[in-house]
Amino acid sequence: MAARESILRSIREHLVASAPHDVVHAEKGDEQSELTLDIGHPNGDRLSASVGVQNDGARSLIEVFGANLEAVGGHCIVARSEAEVIEALNGIIASLQDSPLRGRTIALSNAPLLERLMARVETRVDEIAVSPSAAELFDYDVGISTAQAAIAETGTLMIDSEAERHRLVSLVPPAHIAIVDAANIRLTLGETLATASQGPELSPTITFITGPSRTADIELTLAIGVHGPQELYVVVNEGPPLTNS
């Protein structure tokens, strides 16, 4: 506790020492803000015109979400019913099987919905496991989970560890498929943060995911799938909500 007390004391003492300087500084600050007003924002009007999708009332949240997700290298598939969600899963798994990512072994989160859906997916796979252990997960080709919310303006998924066991399923396998209900898409990050912090207790882990894992650490060349998934598919369900059941 000695360190705690001495750090807090040091903070307080130095803030007290600063007080007389703060007064002088504040006066100067006033002059500066006056200057900002004076020069103004020469391109202010042009800026708001160029904002793009956010202000475009004609486009739906789903379209905005999809466009932003695709812009960062993710795939967005819109389904209008449970049957279409299954069809989408079918198509995604089939196309993964045609790729170097294989798509033969599938790890599901513990969301009961997923087992039900996968039972009706026709593409043949070698194995479907529900919530395998961390060590086992390294051997799976695909991870499937739901997402608790999505942010349209950035193409982002929000996954909440209290709702589902999907921290690792969404991260370790080279492909991640997430199902999100259209009703849970918000326009902005701010709204989503506000929703997340509602309720008495914040979830222990909330993760925002925007596209597949990426790096540009070697000669600024973009490489996808460095530690996390190389492919991210999001199935947006426009039909009756699935994920809260």
Partner: peptide, 20 residues
């Protein structure tokens, strides 16, 4: 617009069988 991942961690997991 946003980096690929943001991890928001609030304390430890609530149940031993949870991930993390």
């Amino acid at each position: 617009q946003l980096t690929t991942y943001q991890s928001l961690i609030t304390g430890t997991k609530r149940r031993p069988e949870d991930e993390g």
